[in-house]
Amino acid sequence: MKPPKTKRSMRTISIDDTLVTELKKYQTWQKRNKLKYGANYIEQEYMITQANGKALSEFRINDIMKTITNKAKLHHISPHGLRHTHAIMLLESGADIKFVSDRLGHTNIKMTADVYLHITKKYESENITKLDRYLSN
């Protein structure tokens, strides 16, 4: 695995209870594998690993995601694509841009705005509606 691009890449983010539950199930699976592989289990600092504990390469992660999306008959999306989707969904749901910027590890809000705000038509539409309401009062 490659080291993070910047110091801000290493950060703690909030996650919802559903993801916490799924991660706990995954940890249980890892513990079973650790017992199964014994001394051959490779201890890692990564959450997502192969059954024997070995870290997944970025290429292997993409292969796994391609398999999953093919089985589900969905378009393939890369891990980085999921990051973009997450950011857009946050913004479209009304999340504050400062929150999104911090969550993504951007150095400033301008970077987040430049990359994401022009993408979301819903955001544009909602803001035009806000302006219309303001002008109507």
Rank of each mutant, 00 (worst) to 15 (best):
W29R: 07
R32K: 13
N33Y: 05
K36I: 07
K36E: 06
K36W: 04
G38A: 00
G38C: 00
N40V: 02
Q44R: 14
E45G: 15
Y46W: 11
I48Q: 06
A51S: 05
G53N: 01
A55E: 15
L56S: 03
L56E: 01
S57L: 11
E58A: 06
F59C: 11
D63G: 11
I64T: 04
M65V: 08
T67L: 10
I68S: 02
I68L: 06
I68A: 05
T69K: 02
T69A: 03
N70I: 07
K71D: 13
I77F: 05
I77E: 01
I77D: 02
G81V: 03
L82V: 06
L82N: 07
R83P: 00
H84P: 03
H86G: 14
A87C: 02
L91T: 00
S93Y: 07
A95I: 08
A95T: 08
A95D: 05
A95R: 09
K98E: 05
K98F: 12
F99G: 01
V100H: 00
V100N: 00
D102L: 13
R103V: 01
R103Q: 13
K110N: 14
D114F: 12
V115I: 15
L117N: 04
L117M: 02
L117S: 05
H118P: 06
I119K: 05
K122S: 07
Y123T: 11
S125G: 07
N127T: 14
N127P: 03
T129Y: 02
